[in-house]
Design a protein around this nucleic acid. Structure first.
Length: 808
RNA sequence: GCGGAUGUGGCGGAAUCGGCAGACGCGUUGGACUUAGAAUCCAAUGGGAGACCGUGCAAGUUCAAAUCUUGUCAUCCGCACCA
């Protein structure tokens, strides 16, 4: 078959007949692949692996009667385009549009049933207008706020770097050491939803691993906040999960960035403290990445009082305490915490045991639960009970309370970059921070911008953009020079697809109610804690604002694996092991290529690319074509051969395939689905080899075969469907239904065991009772030889599978 | 360091509940067709001459373990001073 012309032919017909468009009927099925990031000029194997098999799933569901919505678009803003621009001088808009044009063409050539009428590109005004609108809604809701936060700063390039541009603490371009610099930036208050983002995971049909990653990322921990009164009159609040160790506190530690750090320094320690704070602020990523590095710290000269026992303990600063978690301060119990222990050893601080292990003196630091000692009336308590009672006491004396903390931080969305959606905020000398009125959206991203780095945000240098008037007072105002993190764009795109051409709103409630949530979402696992968490946050926030009526955007999530280079390494230019799909598609066709991707790997595992596999799949398609055309030429006689053993066997194979292929497709177990199809073809070919055969049965079998294969090789099967006289599109045919009767066999092959060792195999009737089976088996010569003169103590029967006789 | 996953022929990978390990395919070998090759078709193919041995390794539970339990090694991924 000349696949190139066949592909073009059917793609044109599908487009004309709107076969791929969502028709608005029920039951709907929203199948979504993560949209493409147009950083490279072409589709790579990873795109194919994501989109090809998932499209086959979508087509399979369509044949099962669902009105499938499968849109595609482009996550078009972002750093790579801007970096490319800095390197080559090609404007990000131009390179992005060029890449999108190429990728659109390739995606269409793939022949997936994407509904192009809903296509979106996040860098277009018609889209980012609504991204900005989202920002304003979050701002109105109090979920967007501004605060000072550090950014990665390359002193040599004089620019802000994204985390991805920092490798081992150095600038990816010039290798100079990256430092931290504070800038006032916008945050989204995702932490407001920490609890719900955590609990909502339980009801999701997502890979357990991904759910666990999110759980750990959110990092809920329950403990207690305790106040230590300082002699200066200030109070240091600490958070601990181990308040049962509070009697063992020998010092208190603040993060160097803690607001009280300077204030608590006594005059004779001030210089040292200042120096340490300065040192800590310069600590680069290399050092921070290492958890094994030696701890550093400095004594402030101040003391505070342990509220439970009145003990006076010193206050230290140390950078092993993080300012961004808990209260930015901890009570140090060196006897029962490894970090405190190491620090106390280094600086000669006292170590006091207050937890013991039953009956033995455990080595310090002892960090497990144990029995309280040296803790006044609490002695003898242990574990959670001990913590509850201590917490209650602390609460009673007014020095603290139980507290839940999360590791999750608020989401920093400001980027000091050009190629993104501008933040729709202006700053007015009189009115302060003012949101741009919705009717003035979009705040357009100007084209003529100097995006080469020179120390300022690219937009900050664009006077026409920056200088504006205050929407409130009409006076002079300046715009926010930053753009939004591209993850903001991708946090709501699945909603926009439902109503992509709406110019009055990001989406209508009606459209979203009809299509959302996404039923099946397929994409890479690398987004577990970023995109997939942000999108959930957006959904919940929009729900609370009354724009939506569901809690979770993606009901089912599937991660495809990664296709590695032939050498088993991740494909990369530096490895020189990049496989381009283009030549293969050119040579074997789109169908064979995607069929190989489905057959050659376990979908969620991926694995190294292998050339031979694709030849095998091409050969399979050749066999199919020849055999389908051959049997189609048969004419059924007036009197068909009646059903005998061969016919039953073929009919069984046919119905077995129907059952298994459907089950495997549903489970994204594409390799086994195709294996079942190969088996069916083999069975049909074998049946065909006989002199006498039932032509109607054979033809009906091959018709089912074609329908089962169609989602996996769409162009190929459409063509064969037409050539064998099929009417309309093969995808408008109902999916074959299995005939339970044909799957019921009269006999099955049993494994016959004596003392758990297989001694024979026997065809035994399925209708036989356990007693009858036992009798049949005992009559077998292989069995009788081994049971002679012995008594059968036990007989285990697994219906349809085995009989095991225990003799002795 | 913590958390999770994976480990099965020469290779990619199968194996609902614990029930015939190795489906399907690649590769290899032999044969057919051919002047010859390519392609195609047919057959064999875990190891071992054999009794038997085989799912990373070592124990355990069970009539029965790739599957369950414990320990251990290796690889991969995520987090990484989160108090």
């Amino acid at each position: 078959m000349d696949m190139r012309s066949v592909e073009r032919k059917w793609q044109a017909r599908w487009e004309k007949s709107k076969l791929n468009s969502y028709g608005g009927k029920q039951p709907k099925l929203y199948v979504l692949e993560m949209f493409s990031y147009p950083s490279g000029a072409k589709l790579h194997v990873g795109h194919w692996y994501n989109y090809g098999p998932t499209d086959s799933y979508a087509r399979f569901k369509r044949m099962q009667g669902y009105d499938v919505f499968q849109p595609m678009g482009f996550d078009a803003f972002g750093l790579p385009a801007e970096n490319y621009a800095i390197k080559t001088g090609v404007h990000p808009k131009d390179s992005t549009e060029q890449n999108i044009a190429t990728m659109e063409k390739q995606l269409k050539a793939m022949g997936a049933m994407f509904d192009w009428s809903a296509e979106i590109k996040t860098c277009e005004e018609s889209y980012y207008k609504w991204t900005q609108w989202m920002f304003l809604q979050l701002y109105k809701k109090g979920l967007a706020y501004r605060k000072e936060a550090p950014v990665n700063w390359c002193p040599s390039c004089n620019t802000v770097l994204a985390n991805e541009q920092v490798t081992d603490g150095r600038c990816e371009r010039c290798s100079s050491e990256v430092v931290h610099k504070n800038l006032t930036q916008w945050f989204f208050k995702i932490t407001d939803y920490a609890e719900e983002l955590l609990s909502g995971l339980d009801g999701l049909d997502w890979p357990e691993k991904t759910k666990n990653m999110q759980r750990n990322w959110i990092g809920r921990s329950t403990g207690c906040e305790i106040e230590f009164a300082c002699e200066t009159g200030d109070a240091v609040k600490v958070f601990t999960t181990r308040c049962d160790t509070v009697f063992g506190v020998t010092y208190v530690v603040l993060a160097p960035e803690h607001p009280l750090a300077r204030k608590l320094a006594t005059p004779e320690h001030l210089e040292e403290v200042e120096a340490y704070i300065e040192y800590a602020s310069k600590a680069n990523e290399i050092e921070r990445l290492s958890s094994t590095r030696e701890k550093t710290g400095v004594f402030t000269g101040s003391y505070c009082v342990n509220p439970v026992n009145g003990k006076r303990v010193p206050i230290w600063l140390a950078d092993y305490v993080l300012n961004s978690y808990g209260t930015g301060a901890v009570m140090a119990v060196p006897a029962h915490d490894e970090r405190d222990f190491a620090f106390a050893k280094k600086y000669g601080l006292p170590i006091v045991r207050v937890i013991g292990k039953k009956g033995e003196d455990s080595e310090l630091p002892y960090c497990e639960d144990g029995i309280m000692m040296g803790s006044l009336e609490f002695d003898g308590l242990s574990g959670q009970d001990a913590r509850d009672k201590v917490a209650a006491y602390i609460h009673k004396i007014g020095k603290g309370k139980k507290k839940v903390n999360y590791r999750l931080r608020d989401w920093l969305v400001s980027r000091q970059r050009y190629w993104g959606a501008p933040i729709p905020i202006v700053y007015c000398e009189k009115c302060g921070t003012v949101p741009v009125p919705e009717k003035e959206l979009p705040v357009k991203l100007p084209y003529d911008v100097e995006f080469r780095p020179d120390g300022k945000s690219p937009l900050a240098k664009h006077e026409k953009f920056m200088n504006t008037t205050c929407p409130v007072c009409g006076g002079k105002a300046t715009r926010d020079p930053d753009t939004l993190d591209t993850f903001v764009c991708s946090s709501w795109y699945y909603l926009r697809y439902a109503d992509a051409r709406n110019d009055k709103a990001p989406f209508s409630r009606e459209a979203v109610d009809k299509l959302l949530p996404v039923d099946t979402y397929v994409g890479g696992a690398e987004h577990a804690c970023m995109h997939l968490l942000y999108a959930r946050f957006f959904t919940k926030a929009l729900r609370d604002m009354g724009y939506l009526d569901f809690d979770e955007p993606f009901k089912r999530l599937v991660h495809q694996g990664v296709i590695l280079g032939p050498d088993g390494n991740r494909m990369s230019k530096s490895h020189g092991n990049v496989v381009s799909p283009d030549e293969y598609v050119e040579e074997y066709g789109s169908d064979a290529f995607r069929l190989y991707l489905m057959f050659g790997f376990s979908y969620t595992e991926g694995g190294p690319w292998n050339d031979d596999g694709i030849k095998a799949v091409a050969r399979f398609l050749d066999r199919v074509e020849k055999f389908v055309l051959k049997t189609d030429g048969y004419k059924a006689p007036k009197e068909e051969k009646p059903y005998g053993a061969e016919e039953k066997a073929l009919d069984y194979a046919r119905n077995f395939a129907i059952q298994r292929v459907a089950r495997d497709m549903e489970a994204f177990s594409f390799n086994t689905a195709i294996a079942r199809l190969m088996e069916l073809l083999n069975a049909a070919v074998k049946y065909d080899a006989a002199e006498e055969k039932n032509i109607s049965l054979l033809k009906a079998t091959m018709k089912d075969f074609l329908l089962l294969l169609a989602p996996c090789a769409p162009h190929f099967c459409e063509e064969l469907w037409e050539q064998t006289g099929g009417k309309g599109s093969v995808f408008e045919q109902p999916y074959p239904a299995e005939n339970a009767e044909a799957l019921r066999l009269d006999e099955a092959e049993y494994a016959v065991q004596v003392n758990s060792k297989i001694v024979a195999r026997a065809m035994l009737p399925n209708s036989a009772s356990e007693e009858e089976l036992r009798a049949c088996v005992l009559a077998l010569p292989e069995v009788s030889a081994r049971t002679e003169g012995k008594s059968v103590k036990k007989c285990i029967v697994v219906k349809g599978r085995l009989v095991n006789l225990i003799v002795g």
